[in-house]
Design a protein around this nucleic acid. Structure first.
Length: 188
DNA sequence: TCTCAGATCGTCT
DNA sequence: GACGATCTGAGAT
């Protein structure tokens, strides 16, 4: 995607990212679930306050923001909006290429005869980072530099708007979006 | 120094 | 399906 794609309203970008392909480190997948975080009006956003960690969201749009959470996991975001802090959290993807590599990185075994066994690879923000080998080292890199995002012709799909998961602040905001009917959706 | 998180997994019913 | 344990590090006090 062109950098300009990410200069728009965060909620708009979150929806527009659904169905796009994300590629990095010999693996790729279709984005199936996202969440919008507007730093200027959302207390749940890390950018609600400007800190060392959230600085990248203030600097520019179209950048990778990776943060470490719960002592174990990374979460992948892409910064949005011109002159305002915001980001879209990538919550789940459907694996396309490098499924065996993903399984190895995740430390789980998958059965080719059971397609459902691959669901557990990337149906959550921490899981997909592990499957793609995404770490904090990618923080502040431009989209298209190491992590690439692009569109490909795909079937039409319906977008579902829902409440965000695991959020204590600003629970009421319906800023989670996912592809209707997809198996690759985070659980809670 | 203290608190707790944009999550996951294992264990229980 | 529901719930508790768990890890490290960023931000608050």
């Amino acid at each position: 995607m062109k950098k300009q794609f990410f200069a728009e309203d965060t909620v708009k970008v979150a929806k527009a990212l659904l169905g796009k392909i994300i590629q990095y480190n010999k693996t790729s997948g279709v984005i199936t679930e996202t969440e919008a975080y507007k730093g200027y009006e959302d207390p749940a956003s890390h950018a609600f306050r400007k800190t060392q960690r959230s600085a990248v969201m203030y600097e520019s749009y179209g950048k990778i923001y990776v943060y470490f959470i719960y002592g174990n996991y990374y979460c992948l975001n892409i910064t949005t909006e011109r002159n305002k802090p915001g980001a879209v959290l990538i919550r789940a993807v459907k694996p396309l290429k490098g499924i065996k590599i993903m399984a190895k990185r995740r430390g789980i075994s998958i059965n080719d005869k059971k397609p459902k066994s691959s669901v557990n690879l990337t149906n959550g923000p921490g899981k997909l980072c592990q499957a793609f080998g995404i770490t904090k080292a990618l923080n502040n890199t431009a989209v298209g530099d190491k992590i690439k995002v692009f569109s490909k012709p795909s079937k039409k799909f319906e977008i579902v708007e829902a409440s965000r998961i695991g959020i204590k602040k600003a629970k009421n905001l319906k800023w989670r979006f996912y592809i209707k009917g997809s198996e690759f959706i985070s659980k809670r």
